[in-house]
Design a protein around this nucleic acid. Structure first.
Lengths: 211, 211
DNA sequence: CGGTGTGAATGCTTTCACAGCC
DNA sequence: GGCTGTGAAAGCATTCACACCG
């Protein structure tokens, strides 16, 4: 894909890649048509074909796409879900109940991401908790993130700390934040925030329903 | 708003409403201009003004909008964040570590949503856990959701159960699902799914970064 | 002035429709 | 016959630019 791919297309392709990876694990579905994808995703078949077109992939034949090939094409085209040797690194900030729920590294298995650090402002918590990657007190955030070149952060601190922590993360050079708090993080355009708090998500759904 | 508001506008307004509610709690910011909002959200001032225009609200004057009034206008226009007497009901499906992290009802305080039930396939878990609303074994999902007219569900089951549980929820009449699993839920167009698993979120960010 | 409200213009996305291929 | 790949049309969303208002 020489030309830059539009945002909406990217989001759909990410979703489709996830679906294909599901199929690859199950091993049942080997080929898939744009109509099949339509029935699972509700996006129109022509839209899906164009998304794939924008990727630059043209492997489709009259019985659809090869699941594995298409998956690879999407990952390459979007530059996501890298192999083990080039995993994108991320950290978890805030080790309350929510943050702790993400410590299990198996969640990220095969996702292209690898969690390499956790932070909490309570030194005590950091010492008590167990995980497969190191946990640090928040005071060491700057150092660790810089030294390990961590790119992404998952923000699971209490609401009140969210804005301040978000700022600190950006100052450390973090490029993207998955925001589990319902605080709105003020950041510049080059930092990407995905707001995934249950409240934001529910509110978006409610607003969409209210036609 | 007589005419239906476009999706992207809705999502921005939801975000802005969240921000305004933050300001209302802090009590510091009383008035706000479209430029101010631009600097926090990175959306252009003219876009924000148009979003507000589409709402049908015209309270702005030469020193901007009244925070409280604008907040109300957005909530009314989008039909969200209702008062205590008309809270939208939702349930949590899957009481593993992630689900349990959401049991604390204070999270939903003032959000317009109220969690009224939790479900898990393990009868034992349901009996052991404590929460401010009742927990049920998954076998009672259909009955409880129907009887209590629950509209939304937060899905926090293990990956493998996600698709099946999603289907069951839809069959129960659930209208929207906040999907914390990285499984892709196949649903019809009238059911709204927000995919907010850490992997989906991180992947979306990574794809966006890769220009 | 420093702001909003808004028509008109621009720029994106999506759908349509159909040629070409297996 | 069923499906992809793709121009061209249609439909949306965003920005521009400026009148108007406190």
């Amino acid at each position: 894909m020489i030309q830059s791919i539009p945002e909406p297309t990217k989001r759909r392709l990410v979703q489709i890649a996830q679906l294909l990876s599901q199929y690859m694990h199950e091993g049942t579905v080997k080929r898939i048509t744009s109509k099949d994808l339509q029935s699972v995703t509700t996006w129109s078949d022509s839209l899906i074909r164009r998304d794939i077109l924008l990727l630059g992939y043209k492997g489709g034949v009259s019985n659809g796409y090869d699941v594995q090939e298409l998956y690879k094409a999407i990952c390459d085209g979007l530059n996501i879900r890298h192999e083990k040797n080039a995993l994108s690194t991320c950290c978890i900030v805030g080790l309350g109940r929510l943050g702790v729920a993400l410590l299990e590294n198996s969640i990220f298995e095969g996702s292209g991401f690898s969690v390499v650090a956790g932070f909490d402002s309570s030194v005590n918590r950091v010492e008590v908790l167990r995980s497969s990657f190191p946990l640090y007190p928040a005071s060491q955030m700057e150092t660790v993130i810089r030294q390990q070149h961590i790119t992404f952060a998952v923000l699971t601190v209490p609401e009140k700390e969210a804005v301040v922590m978000g700022k600190r993360l950006v100052d450390c050079g973090i490029k993207g934040i998955v925001n589990y708090t319902s605080a709105v993080l003020p950041v510049s355009q080059d930092i990407i925030v995905e707001n995934v708090s249950p409240i934001t998500a529910l509110t978006n759904i409610a607003a969409k329903l209210a036609d």
